[in-house]
Simulated assay, not measured.
Amino acid sequence: MPEQHGLTPTMTANEVNDLLKQVYPQLNEQYDFYRVTEVFPGGCTVRLNADERHLRPGGTVSGPSLFTLADIGGYVCVLSHAGPDALSVTTNLNISFMRKAEAGPIDGHCRILKLGKSLMVFDIDIVAGPDRQTVAHATGTYSIPPKRQTTR
């Protein structure tokens, strides 16, 4: 995904992964399914290492698993570009499922469409399989909490 001009990340992929372990430990609990693989100006790439826990009947990765990947992509973008305030929250997320995704690595290529003081709008292309075809596409909005003033 191309870099966005004027949007500079404030955190690396490793720093975001470490922050997620602290503030959102239930995301991966005993397993390391959801990971940030890249942070770049104006976006990020997140990965779901889907196994049998993520499958619905028919061997298809479940919609909730792909939805979670989309939401994590937006969360990573807001954390890495607006600042590491864990209280940023999803206000909207729309997803369209295109084709079946099987177990294995599933990548979400996320880009920030607009970053303001209180809202961030993003989209994410979720790709899987040996041909890396789009299995889902989502758009969403995150609410960014106001900057807290420190008192002395």
Rank of each mutant, 00 (worst) to 15 (best):
R35A: 09
Y31A: 09
A13Q: 13
G140P: 10
M98F: 09
P41G: 10
E52W: 01
F97D: 05
P25N: 10
K100G: 03
I126Q: 06
V89D: 12
F33L: 10
K100R: 02
Q133T: 11
C77L: 07
V135P: 01
V135T: 03
E3L: 12
V78K: 02
S62V: 04
V61S: 02
A128S: 07
V127N: 12
R152M: 05
T91S: 15
C44G: 09
M11K: 10
I126S: 01
Y75P: 01
N17R: 14
L27S: 02
P57G: 01
I124M: 13
T134G: 05
D107L: 11
T12V: 11
G58T: 01
R47V: 06
I72N: 12
Y34G: 00
T150S: 03
T10R: 13
P41E: 03
E15H: 07
K147L: 06
F67V: 11
F122G: 00
Y75V: 02
Q30V: 06
T150W: 02
D85G: 03
A103Y: 02
G140C: 12
E52D: 05
A138Q: 07
H137Q: 10
T91M: 14
G74Y: 07
G59W: 01
R47I: 09
L113E: 13
V76F: 06
H109S: 08
L79W: 08
L119T: 13
V121P: 01
G83F: 11
K114Q: 15
S80T: 10
I112T: 14
S62G: 11
P130G: 13
R152K: 13
P64R: 05
V76P: 03
G58W: 01
V121N: 14
M98E: 09
T45L: 14
L19S: 05
S143Q: 14
R152F: 08
L20R: 06
L55S: 00
T10Q: 14
I112L: 14
H5K: 15
V89A: 15
T60C: 08
L55W: 00
P145E: 06
V135W: 00
P130E: 09
R35K: 13
G43N: 08
F40G: 04
T134Q: 11
A101L: 02
T134L: 03
F97V: 04
F33M: 08
M11F: 04
L87Q: 07
M1D: 07
Y24W: 15
F122E: 10
N92K: 13
L55Y: 02
A50R: 01
D71G: 13
A82V: 11
V16N: 05
P84K: 15
